[in-house]
Simulated assay, not measured.
Amino acid sequence: MRRLSLGRRVRQTCFTEQAFTNRSYRLLGAHNMSSITTHSSLKSISTENAPQAIGPYSQAIVSPPFVFVSGCLGFDAKTSTVAANGLEGQVHQALQNLKGIVEASGSQVGKIVKTTVFVKNLNDFGTINLIYEEFFGEHKPARSFVEVARLPRDALFEIEAIAIV
Rank of each mutant, 00 (worst) to 15 (best):
M1H: 07
R3G: 09
G7V: 06
R11T: 06
Q12P: 12
Q12E: 14
Q12Y: 12
Q12M: 14
F15D: 10
T16Y: 03
E17Q: 13
F20W: 11
F20K: 03
T21A: 11
L27D: 12
L27G: 06
A30Q: 15
M33Y: 11
S40K: 15
S44M: 11
S44R: 14
T47F: 06
E48D: 10
E48M: 05
P51Q: 03
G55I: 04
P56M: 11
A60N: 02
I61C: 07
S63T: 07
P64E: 09
P64D: 10
P64W: 06
P65H: 07
F68A: 03
F68W: 04
S70E: 03
G74L: 02
F75T: 00
K78M: 12
T79R: 09
V82N: 06
A83H: 02
A84C: 10
A84Q: 10
A84D: 13
N85R: 13
G86E: 07
G89L: 05
Q90L: 02
Q90G: 01
V91A: 00
N97R: 02
V102R: 02
S107A: 08
S107M: 03
V109H: 02
K111P: 05
I112D: 00
K114E: 08
V117S: 05
V117G: 03
N123M: 12
N123Q: 15
G126I: 09
G126D: 14
Y132H: 11
E134W: 05
E134H: 07
P141N: 03
A142M: 11
R143P: 05
S144G: 14
V148N: 09
A149K: 09
R150C: 07
R150L: 09
P152Q: 04
D154Q: 02
E158Q: 05
E158P: 05
I159V: 10
E160H: 08
A161S: 05
I164E: 13
V165S: 09
V165F: 08
